[in-house]
Structure formats: structure tokens, C-alpha cells
Design a binder for these strands. Structure first.
Lengths: 105, 105
DNA sequence: ATAACATATGATAATATATTCATATGTTAA
DNA sequence: TTAACATATGAATATATTATCATATGTTAT
């Protein structure tokens, strides 16, 4: 680790701070975390997610919308069903990093 | 990446999900994010942090307390001043990871 | 002991957030 | 085209969160 991992406050704009906070905020809810971990296994449709989380469909859809809007998950339609999956590998990295942290207490 | 980065929902307890969400929630506020990035440079006392963020002392102290309670920062007293610093390298990893993510859009 | 300074904290008000309920939209099969 | 199913969405309520203000606590110098 030379210098690339060091940050000066001035290097980051007000907007970037807000974006970054907003990104983490998405991860800051256990329902969304559960959905994301579930999608580690691969794509899943809404009913499957509801079943796994034992939550009602509306609550899950609302959270899926938030995850989708923030581009952490993507969706494809197959017939009546909507299949959700993780948008990219950063999501995995961030989750793994967080998991490591809480496990080392 | 073989299997160690894969998660099954059952591997993680309800409590762990909540802990994980709680961890990310801490990062989900731009004031706290700014403080954490500031502390990348090294320790800083409360007045210095207030100056850098142009925020009043009470707001900063409240956020420092949250950061401290969640063990993301630690504090040492030197005379009248309290010096805060990052608690460990996970904080850096998580921030870096998030920063990477938002930069690649 | 007291004044001056640095930080912490409790209460409050404003704002944001998550879930629920009711209902709308979209899709398929009959 | 209508019924049945899957998902999305708007409104409302309950709860959580943040910044501010006022004040308390802790530290040092006089």
C-alpha cells in the first residue's frame, strides 16, 4: 500500500461524499442485505425472495426497487416473473468486506 | 474465487444480518464518511475535524460518538483535546471498495 | 478555587425510512 | 376477452436519524 489507498478530503467532492454515503446507505438495511446475500446464489424471482425472507411481496418489491434504482441489482422478465440478480462484482466485494469486519470482533 | 466468497442465506444468522446492516448504516451518512476519509490522513482532534468539515462541534461530536460506539474509530485524550483515528484497516478497505464502485459508473 | 477552553450529551424538531394495505399494471392461459 | 397470477406502486403510519441548542463534564493554567 503506497499512496493509492490514501485519500485527502480535497480529492473528493461534496457530491462524491454524498454518492458514497448513499451507496452505503443501501447496504444499511437488513432486508436489503438479506436480498443481496440471497442473490449471491444466483438470480431469483420475487416470490422466491419473499419465501426465503418470509416477508410480504410489497415490502420486498419496494426494497428491490431501491436496489435496482441504485444499480446494485438488475432484473429481467421471464413470463410473469421478474428475475433479479446482482449487478456486478463490487456488490460481492463490499458485502464480503463487511462480513469479514463483523466476524473479526 | 472458488467457494469462499459464496454465501448461503442459512450460513448467516438473523443477528449477523442485522450487525452487517448496522455496520453499513454507519457508512451511510456523508458527515461520517467525511470524518472517516479525513482520518485516513491520520488522527485529528475534534476542533480540527469541525474546521475541515465546516460543521459545528456538537454535530461532529455526536457523529464521532456513533463512529466510536461502532468501533470504527478510536480516541485518545491529550490534554483538553481528544484525538480520533481509524480503528483498523477494514474501515479503509470498505471505504476504498465503495469509492471504487461509485467511480466506475 | 476559578476562569477559559475542549469535548460530550440530553432534548427537541425536522426529515428520512420501512412496512403495510389497497390497488394498479403486466403477462399468460383458457 | 376474461380470469388468474406475478409484480409494482401510491398513500399512510410508525419509527429512526440528524442537526441544533443549551448545558454539562473534563482539563489546564492562573
Amino acid at each position: 500500500m503506497v499512496h493509492s489507498d490514501d485519500f485527502l478530503l480535497e480529492d473528493i467532492s461534496e457530491e462524491e461524499f454524498i454518492d458514497l454515503a448513499e451507496l452505503f446507505k443501501i447496504f444499511g438495511d437488513s432486508t436489503r442485505i438479506k436480498i443481496l446475500f440471497l442473490l449471491f446464489k444466483g438470480e431469483a424471482n420475487v416470490s422466491a425472495i419473499c419465501d426465503e425472507l418470509s416477508m410480504n411481496q410489497s415490502a420486498v418489491s419496494h426494497q428491490l426497487k431501491i436496489l435496482r434504482t441504485s444499480k446494485l441489482v438488475k432484473a429481467r422478465r421471464a413470463g410473469k416473473a421478474m428475475y433479479y440478480s446482482l449487478a456486478d462484482d463490487h456488490v460481492k466485494s463490499i458485502l464480503s468486506m463487511g462480513k469479514e469486519h463483523i466476524e473479526e470482533d
